[in-house]
Design a protein around this nucleic acid. Structure first.
Lengths: 226, 226
DNA sequence: GTCATTCGAATCCTATAGGATTTCCGCCAT
DNA sequence: ATGGCGGAAATCCTATAGGATTCGAATGAC
């Protein structure tokens, strides 16, 4: 339905590639929770609010559908993807458990000065604020840190593969705020420490433990909400 | 440029969901090699040959772009994705090595009568033909069998994740025919045998060995073509 | 002979209009 | 009062037309 508060900050350059912008814009709206899961998306309304014609919007939605962020019912319009069920959440963590420990180990093998500096910088962003962070800060930090692990691991195909599915977890966590406990940061520190020490086995183990605890936290909040 | 031999077998039912059909049609053309890697796709020509207007074609291409089958240069049109480089091929097999042994182990744990029957039926399709198979038969068999392993493993998220990247390997093998040796079938039999025996560890090991040998075969043909 | 420049054709991109389908609401019968 | 039915509004879907941009070839200069 598009609340109507999102500026139409495009349209200045007529020749600019608008479909890409519309795509990114809609993606941001979904990822930020502005368009809640399961909500219908009216093509004409969206086009009006973005000051474009329905055609680019339709094109962007087709792309988002292949990314799994929206679903299309042939003659009934588009809807955002429903929230992950408990089973789907467990499946997602099974996938993470396959990819991320291996990525952490690879990162420990391949890490260089630039990578370590990036890790330190990322950890420093939350170091001074032990608690009472703005909403979503921990979520964003978590996403960035895991992204750094994949980047350092050096397999771009795996990185993209993971990023494609990670967005669903992101949306899930937005809906059930508080899926992060105090342990999250400590576990991150432990992973980074193992990577800095070039200890692949310890990095993989730290990542496994982090994922295990993370799944417990997420399932806990889901059960509480239920 | 679309050779022009692909019939417009759609258009009978006006209300039918055509974008989906166009999407599947184009995907088939790319996956079958009818549109070679790196070729340009003219929207108007494609629309004419499919007897639809450019709009649904554009919509389908936007979806294919998110799947990684085509790339879009903003004001220069669409092109099919280039063939995998040697490094990308190795990255793909790294991903397979993470997902498929685990899937084989899971399949060995969860296999039931229906799954075993499906495996037998798949192996039987090539049993009578030891050699001199029609081109692409081995490739199709390989794809189906690995898909069966994932289906039996029971994690649909991982299945889709893999299917999304597998298509690139498929295209690669079409370009370098002969990436399958005599060993392929024997290795498949070994994997299925371990799954039938409910031996997860052996299934994973058989899959690892199969992937290792498969990578060697693929890299060999690539080196020979070079 | 080679390079830069200009002109033309082809192509992409967006907007608008019309047809087809679904959905929702009021109405009637039971 | 409840369930079935008919019509109108809303929405999706496709086609067509026009503007903007890019690519290729021909022309001219050095």
């Amino acid at each position: 339905m598009l609340e109507g508060q999102y500026l139409d900050s495009l349209g200045a350059v007529p020749g600019a590639p608008r479909p890409t912008e519309v795509h990114q814009h809609l993606r941001g709206l979904i990822m930020s929770g502005a368009i809640p899961p399961g909500a219908r998306i009216n093509i004409d309304d969206a086009a009006r609010q973005l000051s474009v014609s329905p055609t680019p919007v339709r094109e962007a939605l087709a792309g988002l559908e292949s990314e799994g962020l929206v679903v299309k019912v042939p003659l009934r319009g588009y809807r955002t993807t429903e929230l992950l069920t408990r089973d789907e959440l467990i499946e997602l963590y099974e996938l993470r458990m396959l990819l991320e420990p291996a990525a952490a180990a690879s990162a420990a093998r391949r890490r260089d000065d630039a990578a370590l500096q990036a890790f330190d910088a990322e950890l420093a962003t939350l170091n001074g604020h032990p608690a009472a962070l703005p909403a979503g800060a921990l979520s964003a930090h978590d996403e960035r840190l895991h992204g750094l692990v994949f980047d350092t691991a050096g397999n771009r195909l795996i990185s993209r593969t993971y990023a494609r599915t990670h967005c669903h977890l992101h949306i899930f966590r937005l809906s059930y705020a508080g899926s992060y406990g105090h342990g999250t940061l400590d576990e991150h520190v432990e992973i980074v420490r193992a990577i800095r020490d070039s200890d692949p086995e310890r990095a993989a183990e730290a990542m496994r433990e982090h994922l295990d605890l993370s799944l417990g936290r997420v399932l806990g909040t889901e059960a509480a909400a239920h």
